[in-house]
Design a protein around this nucleic acid. Structure first.
Lengths: 254, 254
DNA sequence: CGGCACGTTGAAGTGACTCAATTCGCGTGG
DNA sequence: CCACGCGAATTGAGTCACTTCAACGTGCCG
């Protein structure tokens, strides 16, 4: 019986990519190290050379940059089944940090094991690669969100993204999902001051779009929220859930 | 004798990753389609499903998002030896567009050929993957730059990044490099208005840091510019020019 | 009950934006 | 050769969104 973290990883990769049966059997041989972390702990720091990559089992992690001034910029949020630092396989020195925003459960997959696996499991390589490409698409959207939108629109977009991703991960309730960031942290994510975040959130509540309460995001009216944010989910590439490209890879290699 | 575009591609990949000799021979079999584009032409559009990926031979390309409102956000700049849309191999539907900012020479590598190559050339797969990871690191930095820095600092950072990358690509002069963006486009890249860009550029000139003139960036005082921008190039992972990880992959697979 | 972190609110200041007019650089055509 | 046109850059002025500062409220936990 495979480790439950391994099973979750296989399910995640299979959700967007074709995994060859023999490669799935290799995946099942992995030996992750399971770790519980309390909120606001660094798992990996800017400048580190990690020898393992994190897979999220529960809770929320975030990547962030720290400037010399000490200012912090959150780059991305990561929930169950995410692989927030798989890129450290190929970029040895971390250019950002990874921390928990929540109490979280994670599994560490050692780079050594992963390298040995990837060398002989091309379908897994492509799946991991695609995972990092999905990350990059979210980064791009963050640039646009923070550059082109303002105030309430910007916050609404973040809400839409997180709720959609939580739904996709199967950890959203009907009209709510976990959202453990403080308003200060939301500001550090969106390039806004704490005060602006507070007022933008109040506007969204007054407009009956969404509400933040005790670490949860409550979606009051999804359609209104979506149009308030001008949210277009195509950058999340949800359609990849039909993993036809993986199959194409398989054909061409046979 | 291999196609010059292929030779440049091999040199680029080899600069940061180990390419196995047999994989290099496979690369040399590729048949890129060479194309000249004039300035401000779209090569690929948001929503497209391209069947080939672009390799830049000369000139400058940019990726950008378009909102429903028509507003444009530039996401990244690409110069000689860049692979600006290699991610379309695995994310079939483009979530952004790619255009020329300059008159440019590019080579299209068909996805079909690339898939056939990657299925049997793991060292090339890892090199391409790493290439997309380097892209992602630059996206992350853009989030931080636009979120945490303001005005002159933000512009100075963009200048530092471009000059460093031009040097790395071997297309920078001693104290200058190509920079064909208009001030409007710089604004659409940095989330600033045309007027703010203009005034920030004037401040940088008055402080004798850098100057924009007729499509060129002139670096007047690199150290001053760097410190003005708080530029830390570690996110560009220039150290990868010793491609030791590729060798490590090779060892583990043998 | 006290302490602390987080959230809320008001008020004042300012950096950036928009709008609009002017100038510059450059290529085109009369 | 010069007038013209056009895109880009520059400049000034008024406005506004967001910031900063500071105080206060609230909920939770020891």
């Amino acid at each position: 019986l495979p480790d439950p973290a391994v099973a979750a990883l296989i399910a995640k990769l299979s959700s967007h990519s074709f995994i060859a049966p023999k490669d799935e059997r290799s995946l099942a041989q992995l030996h992750p190290r399971r770790v519980s972390v309390s909120r606001m702990r660094d798992l990996v720091r800017q400048g580190d050379r990690p020898d393992a990559s994190v897979f999220v089992l529960s809770g929320m992690l975030a990547r962030y940059h720290t400037l010399a001034s000490g200012d912090r910029q959150y780059l991305s949020l990561h929930i169950a089944n995410d692989l927030p630092d798989i890129q450290s396989l190929f970029l040895q020195v971390m250019d950002h940090s990874l921390c928990s925003l929540d109490d979280a459960e994670v599994a560490f997959f050692s780079h050594e094991e992963l390298f040995a696996l990837l060398a002989n499991a091309p379908s897994v390589t492509f799946a991991f690669w695609r995972q990092t490409l999905l990350d990059a698409a979210i980064f791009r959207q963050a640039i646009t969100n923070n550059g082109l939108r303002r105030g309430g629109e910007r916050l609404a977009h973040l809400f839409c993204e997180q709720f959609t991703r939580a739904q996709q991960a199967g950890i959203a309730a009907d009209h709510s999902c976990s959202f453990p960031l403080t308003q200060t942290q939301i500001g550090q994510m969106l390039g806004m001051s704490l005060v602006s975040v507070n007022r933008a959130a109040q506007r969204l509540l007054k407009e009956r779009c969404a509400q933040l309460r005790s670490g949860k995001l409550l979606v009051l009216d999804w359609n209104r929220l979506k149009s308030r944010a001008n949210f277009d989910p195509s950058y999340l590439h949800l359609d990849l859930h039909a993993p036809e490209i993986g199959r194409r890879m398989r054909r061409t290699s046979e």
